[in-house]
Computed example of a mutant assay.
Amino acid sequence: MKVTLRLLLIILLLHSCKGEDSKATVVEEIIPSPEEVLRDYVIKPKNDDGLCREDISRAKEDLKKYGQIYVTTYCFGCESLPYEEEVIEYATYKGFKVISYGFSCVTINGQTQGCYKAFIDLKMEEINGKYFRQKIQIEAEKLMINKLKNSNRSLSIYDLSDNDKPKLVHETNLTKQGYIPTIKTMLPLKFDRDKYPFVDISFIIEKDGKISNLKSENWVDGYKENNKYKKELESMAKKEILNYYNEWIPGKYKNTIARVENNFRVSFQ
């Protein structure tokens, strides 16, 4: 009984707190990106953040030397644009000194990484506007698309969305994963269930759906006894791909048909 009365009292109190015109208010919090936070931070980094301060000093020296700088970045696991080479080409054409800046994704003991690029970008935004990097990237992408149309420029299959990737006319679940069926040779190869020879063959899918430029990229013998058959097996793998996997629906990038680099892993028994 006491519990019931207590519940009724709580309900009455909650009801009395609601006005007839009261409405739920949704507050949207705009969270700044890590890049924006870092650009704010480099204006006044912590005194004990030696790594960041060294990066800023180097950035200032480079700005005195070059004036206009576009920083490209690389790190393990970082995504890259399919038109990275055109970014460098276009930025150079626009008078920027392109500097490659490597960093890891780990900050240790209060030492901040990425300050070199953040400081450079901050100064370049003051001169060229906040979206100067985006503008360069837009023009670089246009340049790449023009090359796809009019030259031998190719893209990696990993640069394309699933819908835009080239597809075998007779595709299977195995080929979707980058494999073809194991080739059964007449050679006295040594292998078992978990240890066998294989080779990765790269190739280009041309705009007409045919393949070209077959290359052996990675050979694993399984057992050292198989090494003496390496050239023969690589030749078998290339012939197998040319004979049975040479009809593709070509890939495209933003509705532009493109030459696309792909690969198959071929195993042997």
Rank of each mutant, 00 (worst) to 15 (best):
residue 268 F to G: 03
residue 241 I to C: 05
residue 22 S to P: 00
residue 16 S to E: 10
residue 55 D to T: 04
residue 204 I to W: 08
residue 182 T to M: 13
residue 207 K to C: 04
residue 96 F to G: 07
residue 228 K to I: 15
residue 123 K to G: 09
residue 267 S to M: 09
residue 249 I to G: 01
residue 165 K to P: 02
residue 20 E to H: 11
residue 223 Y to L: 03
residue 13 L to M: 11
residue 204 I to P: 02
residue 126 E to I: 06
residue 241 I to R: 02
residue 133 R to G: 01
residue 203 F to G: 09
residue 211 I to T: 05
residue 3 V to N: 15
residue 219 W to I: 07
residue 139 E to N: 10
residue 189 L to Y: 04
residue 224 K to I: 15
residue 172 T to V: 06
residue 176 K to C: 01
residue 173 N to S: 12
residue 4 T to H: 14
residue 25 T to C: 10
residue 266 V to E: 09
residue 11 I to W: 09
residue 62 D to L: 14
residue 73 T to A: 13
residue 9 L to D: 01
residue 36 E to N: 14
residue 148 L to R: 00
residue 78 C to F: 09
residue 116 Y to W: 03
residue 70 Y to F: 14
residue 74 Y to M: 07
residue 162 D to V: 11
residue 237 A to W: 11
residue 84 E to N: 10
residue 52 C to T: 01
residue 129 G to W: 02
residue 61 E to V: 11
residue 84 E to W: 08
residue 189 L to H: 04
residue 146 N to R: 05
residue 44 K to S: 12
residue 148 L to Y: 05
residue 44 K to Y: 12
residue 240 E to D: 13
residue 159 D to G: 06
residue 163 N to F: 13
residue 206 E to C: 01
residue 152 N to T: 10
residue 52 C to G: 01
residue 223 Y to K: 00
residue 67 G to Q: 08
residue 149 K to Q: 10
residue 262 N to S: 15
residue 257 I to E: 09
residue 80 S to T: 10
residue 231 K to G: 04
residue 31 I to L: 14
residue 50 G to L: 15
residue 256 T to W: 03
residue 117 K to S: 13
residue 105 C to Q: 14
residue 181 P to T: 03
residue 77 G to R: 05
residue 68 Q to L: 11
residue 134 Q to D: 15
residue 90 Y to V: 14
residue 265 R to I: 00
residue 117 K to Y: 11
residue 237 A to H: 12
residue 249 I to D: 08
residue 247 E to V: 03
residue 46 K to W: 12
residue 76 F to V: 12
residue 38 L to G: 03
residue 89 E to M: 13
residue 248 W to L: 08
residue 70 Y to D: 04
residue 222 G to N: 04
residue 130 K to C: 04
residue 53 R to G: 00
residue 68 Q to C: 10
residue 82 P to V: 00
residue 39 R to A: 10
residue 189 L to S: 05
residue 87 V to T: 02
residue 122 L to F: 11
residue 102 G to N: 06
residue 84 E to Q: 13
residue 45 P to A: 09
residue 141 E to R: 09
residue 40 D to T: 02
residue 2 K to Q: 15
residue 97 K to W: 00
residue 43 I to C: 03
residue 221 D to T: 07
residue 268 F to M: 10
residue 121 D to Y: 13
residue 168 L to N: 07
residue 226 N to P: 06
residue 12 L to D: 09
residue 103 F to M: 04
residue 109 N to R: 12
residue 228 K to F: 04
residue 18 K to F: 14
residue 56 I to E: 07
residue 263 N to Y: 15
residue 5 L to P: 01
residue 215 K to S: 12
residue 62 D to V: 03
residue 4 T to N: 13
residue 257 I to S: 10
residue 127 I to D: 06
residue 198 F to A: 01
residue 79 E to F: 15
residue 109 N to T: 05
